[in-house]
Lab assay of single mutants.
Amino acid sequence: MQRVNMIMAESPGLITICLLGYLLSAECTVFLDHENANKILNRPKRYNSGKLEEFVQGNLERECMEEKCSFEEAREVFENTERTTEFWKQYVDGDQCESNPCLNGGSCKDDINSYECWCPFGFEGKNCELDVTCNIKNGRCEQFCKNSADNKVVCSCTEGYRLAENQKSCEPAVPFPCGRVSVSQTSKLTRAETVFPDVDYVNSTEAETILDNITQSTQSFNDFTRVVGGEDAKPGQFPWQVVLNGKVDAFCGGSIVNEKWIVTAAHCVETGVKITVVAGEHNIEETEHTEQKRNVIRIIPHHNYNAAINKYNHDIALLELDEPLVLNSYVTPICIADKEYTNIFLKFGSGYVSGWGRVFHKGRSALVLQYLRVPLVDRATCLRSTKFTIYNNMFCAGFHEGGRDSCQGDSGGPHVTEVEGTSFLTGIISWGEECAMKGKYGIYTKVSRYVNWIKEKTKLT
């Protein structure tokens, strides 16, 4: 034993070699072989497995989906700052455009905790909710729209109204504003409101030439003092309507412009014939205590009207009353817009006519005020429907199939267009061939041609 100890002390290297040989010859039971080890760690190889990531292109799944990435790591994937920024906006807080917040056709661009709407022409605001041009839906104005110097929408209202708090709607500024039905039992019968379409306001006024200088022999019209197929109006439903009495009662109609003036057809009036105007009328054979009678003290036909040349060209006249009318729910003026808007309103496509005229061709006159909704007829169809001249200051309205029309005794009465609950004068009943005849239409004086003249002559002093 002493000898062994001496050998170990003198030859430590020998001992180490012996131990190493023993270990190498022993069977290893701690580690699995290569094949079995792979069965336990069965993990798919990654895209760049075996390579240094710093030297390969980034992978979106590896960089940002398996674990949260930084902007720089995302930049490695896209290799483009702009594309990385677009991805980053949604990656950080989701897609803010998912709810489609942009209105009126706006395009949404996502941002971090926010979004941006790219608005089409005519709109602005956070969600493109603000109209900035009158060309689109009248700028959301209830009545009139004008573009300011910086191309912003400025709404306005006709006389007797003021802008509401929203700067879009119009509200009454006087007790009985024009064009409004205020009798409670008839307010439910107000005709369907007309909503502004998209309009090209630059070209809204037709490029028409008034044929002022045409000389033409007097034409022989049949029954051209021209509501057939209409309905009984309720008291106060058309408070701007008046009836004219002269040699015979209810020979023509008219509309209240203001307390002192009536507008009617020029062919209705004769110099030297006494005319009485009755406002607030409903049943011409009954006294309903809503009527107001006034005498006409002055007749002003349009300066281009000449019955000797043509009885229905420039067929418009103004009547001055001896005493002002007292405005109330049964006696209310009709609204008159400017030339541009009167023309736009007419193009809405349908209007209402009213009167006490004959209820059928050569038949009896109506006792109760009649009204009828009539569609506008395109000019080409209008011209083809008659052998008589249709001037540019006239328009056609009615039904091709016949059966409904204005008729004798309705002449001078109103053709009105309702705009968001307020009625505007767009025409004056003038003439036609018979009444409600198939293929024939009622012919009306186009008020847009005469609004400046009306307003100039009827100013209240």
Rank of each mutant, 00 (worst) to 15 (best):
E340F: 10
I336P: 00
K89N: 14
E208S: 14
V202T: 14
I40S: 02
S350F: 12
C119Q: 03
F55V: 11
G13H: 08
D249T: 12
C102M: 01
N135P: 09
K68T: 07
C178N: 00
E340W: 10
G280E: 01
L163V: 11
I299S: 12
K234S: 13
E27R: 10
I344A: 15
S182M: 11
R449L: 15
T342R: 00
L60C: 00
S25V: 13
C170Q: 00
R180K: 13
L41Q: 05
V77G: 04
N138M: 07
F87C: 00
T422Y: 04
S169V: 06
K137V: 11
K274Y: 06
I17F: 09
Q370V: 03
P101Y: 04
T209S: 12
L367N: 14
H282I: 09
Y352E: 03
R373Y: 06
Y161H: 05
E142D: 12
H267A: 04
A207E: 13
S70M: 05
P44G: 09
G179W: 00
A265C: 03
V199R: 13
T225V: 12
C134Y: 03
N304C: 08
K339M: 13
Y450W: 00
D378W: 03
V277P: 00
I334F: 00
A307G: 12
A173N: 08
C134L: 03
N138S: 06
V30Q: 14
S365C: 04
L372A: 14
N295I: 06
N166D: 08
T461Q: 10
K457C: 09
W88N: 03
E54H: 00
N135L: 12
T133W: 06
K387N: 15
D95I: 09
H289S: 14
K234H: 13
F31V: 13
Q237S: 07
D33P: 06
V377K: 05
L346C: 02
N245P: 03
S156F: 12
V331M: 01
G179A: 01
Q237Y: 09
I17A: 09
G105P: 03
E418F: 08
N80G: 08
L325E: 01
K234V: 15
W261A: 01
S430W: 03
H361R: 11
E61V: 04
P177F: 01
E456N: 13
L41V: 06
L369Y: 13
F395S: 02
N42K: 14
N38Q: 14
G160K: 02
V273F: 09
Q167R: 09
E285L: 13
D410N: 10
A164C: 05
N304R: 11
L14S: 06
E434K: 11
Q370M: 05
N258M: 02
S329P: 15
Q96A: 14
D223Y: 07
E193Q: 05
V374A: 11
V368F: 05
P172D: 04
L325C: 01
K89H: 12
I262K: 00
D410I: 15
V273W: 13
G160I: 01
N113E: 13
Q57R: 00
F196P: 13
S11Y: 08
Y341R: 06
H415Y: 08
G106W: 03
N5G: 13
Y22T: 11
C157V: 00
R3N: 13
G409W: 08
C69Q: 00
A233T: 09
I275D: 02
M65C: 05
G280T: 02
N42M: 10
G272D: 10
A149Y: 12
K260Q: 06
C18S: 12
F71H: 04
V195C: 06
T332A: 10
Y330M: 08
N393P: 02
R140Q: 13
V153H: 09
R46P: 02
D338V: 04
G229Y: 15
G160A: 03
E142M: 12
L24A: 14
G351V: 01
V374D: 01
Y115K: 04
G246M: 06
M6S: 13
F348V: 15
M394D: 01
S114L: 11
I17Y: 14
T215A: 08
Y391N: 15
L32G: 08
P12H: 11
T190F: 09
Y330W: 14
V374N: 02
D378V: 03
Y352K: 02
N147L: 13
S114T: 14
N213T: 08
G355I: 05
G280M: 02
R180Y: 06
E208H: 13
T84Y: 02
L103V: 10
T81R: 10
G349T: 04
N245W: 08
D33Q: 07
G246S: 11
V92Q: 14
W453S: 00
D131S: 13
D249K: 14
I284Q: 07
F238P: 03
F121Q: 14
E54V: 01
F399M: 09
A397P: 00
C102E: 02
P197L: 10
C97K: 03
A250G: 14
E53M: 00
G58V: 02
Q57F: 01
S70C: 04
E323T: 13
E76N: 01
E281F: 10
S448V: 03
Q237E: 06
T458I: 06
T417Q: 04
A26R: 01
